[in-house]
Nucleic acid binder design. Structure first.
Lengths: 211, 211
DNA sequence: GTCTATATACGGATAGAC
DNA sequence: GTCTATCCGTATATAGAC
């Protein structure tokens, strides 16, 4: 579960951020010590504190990496070969499922984990988390806009995009706790049912008397 | 945000668990030190370790309290005066909203926070978290069963109950991160729309040609 | 069962030479 | 920019008298 060793062609600062990103994702922020990061990155204390005054600054840098990686590292791989915008949303969810499955339901969404681990994060950290959520939601919103003609006219597109994130995060939380994909899958299935109902026009007023 | 002082008529062990419950909820498990708990409970180190060999044993006891409190502390207050089973589900969600609102969106669901804070919890802790989720889901499932005749016959009741938990936890996570009720409210609104659609029979096959 | 005092480890962060 | 050595606070847990 650890990459062969963060590419040694990078600068020390970059290696430290990448190592921190991996360890924060694996063990969380609080349980990752600066000493862990230094050891795994093959760096020394002085180098880290030269680039990052505090451990928290390192966290903010990691969250920036996640943000910048949403498009190339998350969306692009998930969407190749999938054309339908709504199916792209479910392909995104499937990528989280793969991650859960590949790790025995121990790793889900690193942003969500950090968001709940840090109860009272300092403003820059909280903002960086919020920016990550916003970026994710905006990507889903874009897919919904592309499928707008298949959704009821009065649909709140932004709220529906947030709802997709909600379903992903809630499902990941339960699957990690139960160490089973069942809860995540159940959530996706229900969400799919909802999308199907959204795309099915309701009975017209004068047709209700037929049933 | 702190009770006037955990009732001094209780045994020391009980006072310690109640204090730990409060502090774990406020600051998380990792950020609450044993010294914090001792100070706030007005107890000494020896008393704690006499009753609980480790801090983790204290956590398991706290999770047991949460489990036992679902019915009397959570459901009963939320459901008084609400008769409709589906409205009881939304009343339960409203109780989480109240908690978010009362705390400036800093406290949501203590179980969910712990579930994501503890990345690789020891088996007894993970089980205790899972038991809490199960108890919550079963309560919602009971309400859905009471409303079964208003839902499509093929509805997976258990999965739908899990979905309600998913929506609550995902909404709480985002609202805490954004420090705004908007995301939570949006999730509840979308969920309500879904329930309405579930309760609206779809067009019969031979009526589709009318539209 | 409760008290005080303390063992022991590890945390983040720093100093100052090179 | 990177190195080694280390400061200093706080963490969980324990010892042993009462």
């Amino acid at each position: 579960m650890k990459t062969q060793r963060e590419n040694s062609r990078l600068t020390t600062a970059d290696r430290l951020v990448l190592t921190a990103m991996r360890l924060f994702g694996e063990k969380g922020y609080g349980s990752t010590s600066v000493a862990d990061i230094l050891r795994e990155a093959g760096a020394n204390s002085g180098s880290l504190y030269h680039a990052f005054p505090t451990k928290q600054d390192l966290l903010v840098a990691v969250l920036g990496l996640y943000r910048d990686g949403i498009e190339p590292m998350l969306l692009e791989p998930a969407w190749t070969g999938v054309d339908d915008p709504i199916e792209q949303i479910f392909a995104l969810l499937a990528s989280y499922r793969s991650r859960l499955e590949a790790t025995g339901c121990t790793y889900g969404c690193p942003i969500g984990s950090l968001a709940l681990e840090l109860h009272e994060p300092d403003p820059p950290v909280r903002e960086a988390l919020a920016v990550n959520f916003d970026g994710w939601v905006s990507a889903v919103e874009g897919r919904l806009l592309a499928a707008r003609d298949r959704l009821p006219a009065q649909t709140d597109i932004r709220a529906l995009a947030q709802f997709v994130l909600t379903v992903m995060e809630g499902g990941v939380m339960q699957s990690r706790t139960h160490r089973s994909l069942q809860a995540f899958d159940a959530g996706v299935t229900v969400l799919r049912d909802y999308f199907q109902r959204l795309q099915t026009p309701p009975p017209t007023p004068d047709s209700t008397e037929r049933s």
